[in-house]
């Protein structure tokens, strides 16, 4: 099975849960509740780390439950890299789909550029610092996965969505016509914050050549990368979110001899 197939299954399951959880909640089955801002699986709480962190900054208060609920996503990011982004984030799923749509329409984007590797980190820092100045958790309005899940829940519960969804529409239109996958690769503060928790042993894509595995310099992996990175050249952090598309492509062309692997 290719990595992509497993990933698609998880992505579809995630989209399903985004719809199912509010429906179950409405029927007063509340074992699972919440959104990608903050999710409750029974007694286990999971909060988006940037949302939790900026809230502590703006409120000048450390809520123990909030801090504790950030542990699971941070641990996952530290061990597996940003698999949340590539395997679960509904914005990434939508953006991937829009990217395929752009291929079909042969949409020429207004700008093509090599993905700058540190702009997203700078955006993240700006958002986190602006939140206490604004006096409210600004990142909440910029969390695409949060907005998609919370507004779906709101649609199911209240029959209406808020202006927050405009951001999602803007992202998708921009990615279709202005610059390829620009939100995830260059702007998203949620991904930017998770990327801060990457360490030496964090899972990543690596080019490992030995007697059996060698790179033919075909650059098919560059083509496969939606985020505009060059996995073969190695300069892919902190943008790469471990989607594995490059590894799949490499495996297809090189069979067992693929040099691109997930490495810890």
């Amino acid at each position: 099975m290719t990595i992509r197939r497993a990933r698609r299954a998880v992505q579809i399951l995630t989209l399903g849960m985004i719809v199912l959880i509010p429906i179950l909640n409405r029927a007063e089955i509340t074992f699972l509740s919440g959104t990608f801002y903050s999710l409750a699986i029974g007694p286990v709480w999971i909060t988006d780390p940037i949302i939790g962190f900026q809230t502590m900054l703006t409120s000048l208060r450390i809520d123990k439950a909030l801090l504790l609920s950030m542990v699971i996503p941070l641990a996952a990011a530290a061990v597996l890299g940003r698999v949340f982004c590539s395997w679960m984030c509904p914005q990434n799923t939508l953006s991937e789909w829009v990217d395929h749509l752009a291929d079909r329409l042969s949409s020429k984007r207004m700008f093509t550029f090599r993905t700058p590797r540190h702009v997203r980190t700078a955006v993240t820092a700006a958002v986190v610092l602006a939140a206490p100045l604004a006096g409210f958790p600004l990142a909440s309005l910029l969390s695409a996965p949060g907005i998609i899940s919370a507004q779906t829940a709101r649609l199911i519960k209240e029959g209406a969505v808020g202006a927050e969804v405009i951001l999602i529409a803007v992202i998708l239109i921009a990615e279709l016509f202005v610059a390829r996958r620009v939100w995830c690769s260059t702007l998203c503060p949620v991904g930017g914050f998770l990327a801060l928790f990457r360490f030496r042993r964090t899972m990543r894509v690596a080019l490992v050549e030995d007697a059996q595995h060698h790179c033919g310099r075909c650059h098919a992996c560059d083509e496969a990368c939606q985020l505009g990175l060059a996995p073969m050249a190695g300069d892919i952090q902190p943008v790469c979110h471990n989607c594995g598309d490059c590894i799949d492509t490499c495996a297809r062309l090189q069979h067992g001899a693929r040099p691109l692997v997930f490495k810890r």
Partner: peptide, 22 residues
């Protein structure tokens, strides 16, 4: 409240009466 609420909508989601609006 404005500084602390993360705008996640969980309270609205859990409210059995639909009293909590966004």
């Amino acid at each position: 409240f404005l500084a602390t609420c993360i705008r996640c909508g969980k309270c609205a989601q859990i409210c059995p009466y639909g009293s909590i609006r966004t």
